[in-house]
């Protein structure tokens, strides 16, 4: 993982933890499947917050794949060319 990718992952974790009102800082990856609070409305909130924060845009059919902080960080990093 490059330094940029690592920084992105930490920021993604922080953003997701804040949206889900989880105790911060989130020291480990967060997966939607394992987090009851990550419901359908929170998912949309998280995706749009990520888009606004990183200046990226995800296709509608990519939304379901943004299902963990690791997956999100990878997709954001790919968008940003990190």
């Amino acid at each position: 993982m490059s330094a940029d990718a690592g920084a992105i992952e930490l920021e993604v974790r922080s953003l997701v933890a804040a949206a889900l009102k989880l105790p911060a800082p989130a020291r480990a990856p967060i997966a939607r499947e394992a987090c009851a609070a990550w419901d359908s409305l929170k998912h949309v909130e998280i995706v749009f917050a990520l888009e606004d924060r990183f200046g990226v845009q995800f296709d509608e059919d990519e939304f379901p794949r943004l299902d963990s902080t690791s997956a999100i960080a990878d997709m954001v990093a790919a968008r940003l060319g990190s």
């Binding site: 009851a36 609070a37 990550w38 419901d39 359908s40 409305l41 929170k42």
Partner: peptide
Amino acid sequence: NAQVVAFHDSC
């Protein structure tokens, strides 16, 4: 069905 319960809470 915890995520649906959470959905209604979130709404």
